[in-house]
Structure formats: C-alpha cells, structure tokens
C-alpha cells in the first residue's frame, strides 16, 4: 500500500504526511488513539491525541505523566500536513473514528465501532471518505446482534430465576465499556443493585463522573460467599472466571455477556451456563452497512480473520483488501 495518508507498519497504522501512528503497538513520537481499551491505548508514546469524551479514561490508562491533547468530536486539528478530526464510533465512552484529509483525499480509520444505540456513548457517525479502514472482529454472517431490549429482558429473567433458586447470578463482562453499558441499560429497566468486582470499580466511577446514569453498584465484599449472595447480581471481568476467586460462588449460575456468545460452542467450551449476546463491535449487517454508508472507493479490512469480510466485499463489487495481507506484522 503506497499512500501518503496511511501505511501499515509493524508498530501499527502510520500516516506519513502527518507523521503519526494510530493505536501504535510500540512507543512512537506521536500517537492518535481511538479508545481506552488496553490493546489500543498503550503507555510509552511521547505524545497522544484523544477524543475529549474519553480523556479521564485515557488518563487513567496512560498515567499522570503522559502528554495528552484532547479534541472535541468533529473539531479539526492539524498534524503535519494533515487535517485530522475525531468522530464518535459508538464503541464505548470516548471512542473515536479518525478522519484524515490531505491533498483532497479523505481516509477514515473506524477503530472499533458499533451501530446500535448505547446510553453510555455518542452514536456512530457516518463520515464520508475515499478510503475506509474497517474493523472486522465479528466478520462472519452468523453474527447479527439481537435487539438489546430482548437481551436485557432475558438477563433480568435469568436474574429473577437465580433469586428463585437461591443462587448468585454471576455475570462476566469486560470491565471497561461492556460493564457500564449493561449497568446503564439495566438502570433504564429496574431499580436494583449490582455487586461489582474490584476491577470494575474505577471504570464505573469514571462513567458516573461523565454524567451517565448507571444502576447503583456496591463493591463486592471481601468476605462475600455464595450463600450470602443468593439472588444477587455479581459482575466480574472474564479474567476472574475459573480462578480461586470463583470458589466462593461455587453454586452460582454463571453467564458471559459477549458477542462471541452467539455461537453455542464458545459458551460450552468456556463452561458458562448462559450467554448473553451483547457486543460493542459491529455485527455483519453493521459492517456491510458502514462500508456502504462511507461511500469509500477503497476498503481496508483490519482485525481478526478479515478474509471472509474482504472476499464478500469484493464479490459485492468493492475494492477491498485485508490489511493483514499487506504485511501488517
């Protein structure tokens, strides 16, 4: 890929005309970061550009010393010869797509995104462009997200069922983004309390500080045991599953909230009783729709096994390439 706006390099996507990297894997001079998840926002870069809505989360992730410049969504700034702006991607609080304009061409890097409404963040914005770089975490047509209303109703009836059976309802979900989205959706439908694992405390507080209404939460007591937690909802990061921590809740009904739960084998392999299909990434229709909406004449597919989406896009008549195949590693 010979392009003065975008080149895949071993550190990540590089913009030569602006001399910056997007979500670099290793330390560089200038990093434009799409969102605060650990595999995108890494410490050690000399300078950062992030969306203002996610600045508190970024500060938490990157540390007091990090040099961070924040930008409102849609507000253009200049890096080198490139006009840059950040636009909501709907993935989580502060998540951004990166728009780059130079010499009359526009490239948009989607970062992680979803098209569904989410009470914790600004909705995905369609940004017209010539080149669209899309994620494809869920790049198979078997992924079509069910309506969130139905999923939350299902989750609540599982919680009720646990209460009837006198067991804790132990819900695993990613500590940053997914947990807050679930708490926000629950807050719209019930007035109960959730117990949260220590890993969720700080992210929950950041979301509250940003003025987002969440279900009331209490830190999970150090000595909480299964019997005392009968009928209670406990939220924990997936990394806590199958660790000694779990022994305290041996009788709990377990669930995992993730897009991967769409496939039965994924849930069974990980040993969860229930899987709730909730994802902060675009599903197959969302990917196709975003590609079409962008109006781009060239599509790059990044993330995961992009082959399936790339081939399908080509058959639909798009000029699509998998970024991995261009020597990303």
């Amino acid at each position: 890929m010979r392009d003065d706006l975008l080149q895949p390099r071993s550190q990540g996507l590089y913009c030569p005309a602006g001399d910056f990297f997007i979500d670099p894997r290793w330390p560089v001079e200038r990093a434009v970061v799409t969102h605060a998840h650990g595999d995108h926002a890494r410490i050690g870069n000399a300078g950062y550009h992030v969306a203002a809505a996610g600045s508190a989360l970024m500060r938490e992730r990157l540390g007091e010393e990090a040099v961070i410049e924040t930008h409102e969504y849609g507000e253009a700034f200049t890096l080198g010869d490139v006009r840059v702006s950040m636009h909501p991607s709907g993935h989580m609080l502060g998540a951004a797509q990166i728009r780059m304009e130079h010499g009359g061409r526009v490239v948009v890097v989607s970062g992680d995104y979803k098209r569904e409404a989410d009470p914790t963040c600004a909705p995905f914005e369609t940004v017209p462009c010539d080149v669209f770089v899309t994620e494809s975490t869920f790049g198979w047509p078997v992924y079509r997200w069910p309506p969130i209303d139905a999923v939350i109703a299902d989750l609540l009836s599982w919680w009720d069922d646990c209460a009837r059976r006198g067991v804790p309802a132990l819900l695993f979900c990613y500590a940053l983004g997914k947990a807050q989205r679930l708490l926000a959706e629950l807050a719209l439908r019930c007035d109960r309390v959730a117990h949260v694992h220590g890993a969720l405390l700080q992210p929950v507080q950041h979301y509250r500080d940003a003025g987002i209404a969440l279900l009331p939460t209490v830190p999970l007591a150090e000595n909480a045991r299964g019997t005392a937690m009968a009928g209670e909802l406990i939220m924990a990061p997936p990394s806590a599953a199958n660790t000694p921590w779990m022994r305290r809740f041996a009788n709990a009904s377990t669930a995992f909230a993730s897009g991967w739960m769409q496939v039965r084998g994924n849930r069974r392999r990980r040993g969860f009783d229930r899987g709730f299909v909730v994802s902060d990434h675009a599903d197959w229709p969302g990917l196709l729709r975003s590609v079409a909406d962008s109006g781009a004449s060239r599509i790059y597919v990044t993330h995961g096994d992009g082959d399936v989406l790339t081939r399908h896009l080509r058959e639909l008549g798009h000029d699509a390439l998998a970024l991995e195949a261009l020597g990303e590693s």
Partner: peptide, 13 residues
C-alpha cells in the same frame, strides 16, 4: 467452519 456445527450455522445465517 467458524461455528463448527452445520445445523447451528444455518440457523444463525
């Protein structure tokens, strides 16, 4: 191939 079960894959498609 991705789902690992034809009956399920079709139901999802």
């Amino acid at each position: 191939q991705h789902v690992g079960d034809l009956a399920e894959a079709i139901a999802l498609l």
